[in-house]
């Protein structure tokens, strides 16, 4: 019995050690237009990668491409040393995501929304009320919530779904100062657990990460027209 437990612990540690993501010479496209070219970065466990750049440079496009919501024409995505470039279906199952859209039903209360996603992902039974307390969320109908409260609800879902690699697209938007602190706290807790966070933001200092990627360096050169 003791051996079995030890084996399971070793397996869990091994699994955690394996958490890594490698983006190699990735081109991001929308339609026929190349938005970013030759994006390269790698992250092992407990890393926070901050992606920054001006509006419209392709931060969301990059995250959606990694997530598998946009196609890859060139480049590779390796997760835990396995190439998932041509397997977006399996790649999606490894990742957790926060986008511009909150993916919440306006007719349900905050609790119902979180319970819906908890049941849908059959995730571990995190106590939803504890999460709501953490984020300071009242149990009211979502249609009566502010944009900040909706964002906090969407962020609470991150902890419900779990998974090792988080892709966060401007997670601090609409959040008040306390909300931003809580966001940093959950990202740090995820880091301590060995998780990886890839965060696109206009405020790179918020996460105090050494790994900041400026996306302007990967944007194709624009033609300058003389008028």
């Amino acid at each position: 019995m003791k051996d079995k437990i030890k084996d399971l612990q070793t397996l869990a540690i091994k699994k955690e050690k394996m958490t890594s993501i490698n983006i190699g010479s990735l081109n991001c496209i929308i339609g026929n237009k190349t938005i970013l070219s030759d994006v390269n970065f790698a992250a092992n466990k407990s890393k926070i990668i901050v992606i920054t750049g001006p509006n419209g440079i392709g931060k969301s496009t990059l995250l959606k491409t990694i997530l598998g919501l946009l196609p890859i024409l060139k480049g590779s995505i390796t997760i835990n040393d396995r190439d998932y470039t041509n397997d977006p279906e399996s790649r999606k199952e490894k990742l957790n995501f926060i986008g511009h859209k909150n993916a919440l039903n306006e007719n349900f209360t905050i609790f119902e929304n979180l319970r819906y996603w908890q049941n849908f992902f059959s995730s571990e039974k995190t106590d939803i009320y504890t999460l709501m307390d953490f984020w300071g969320l009242p149990n009211i109908k979502l249609s009566t919530c502010s944009e900040g409260q909706k964002k906090k609800t969407a962020l609470a879902r991150l902890s419900i779904i779990g998974r090792h690699i988080w892709l966060l697209d401007e997670p601090a938007s609409n959040l008040d100062l306390l909300g931003q602190k809580k966001l940093v706290q959950i990202v740090k807790e995820h880091q301590i657990k060995g998780g990886i966070s890839i965060i696109s933001t206009h405020n790179p200092d918020l996460f105090k990460s050494k790994n900041v990627i400026e996306l302007s360096n990967f944007a194709p050169k624009k033609k300058i027209y003389n008028v």
Binding site: L67, G68, L69, K92, E93, L95, N96, F97, G99, H100, K101, N102, A103, L104, N105, E106, W117, F120, F121, S122, I161
Partner: peptide, 14 residues
């Protein structure tokens, strides 16, 4: 699709 739920359906194991 508009509220983003479809993105999460695609992320799930189902």
């Amino acid at each position: 699709y508009e509220n983003g739920s479809t993105d999460f359906y695609l992320l799930s194991d189902f």
